[in-house]
């Protein structure tokens, strides 16, 4: 079963397979390691983290508009 990934602040959702790296999630959401952060259960993780099935995952776009 896929893991539901919330994208903030856009409000969109993605679905990802367990085992996918955080960096891949950033790319899937159209970001890179500078412009986004992946949170697992509310805590930031590094780009090499691999998503697990029961993780609550959020991809945060940290660049704000100006």
């Amino acid at each position: 079963m896929g893991v539901k990934v919330r994208i903030v602040p856009d409000g969109r959702y993605l679905e990802a397979e367990p085992g996918v790296r955080a960096l891949d999630l950033l790319k899937l959401a159209g970001m890179n390691s500078e412009s986004g952060v992946v949170l697992v259960n509310g805590r930031p993780v590094t780009e090499d983290y691999r998503i697990r099935e029961d993780d609550e995952v959020t991809v945060v776009r940290v660049l704000s508009g100006g």
Binding site: S35, G65, G66
Partner: peptide, 18 residues
Amino acid sequence: HEECPNVDFNSMENRLKV
């Protein structure tokens, strides 16, 4: 963590940021 509703993501500034 929310954007102003008036933000224009196609502005020169926001494109340059990317």
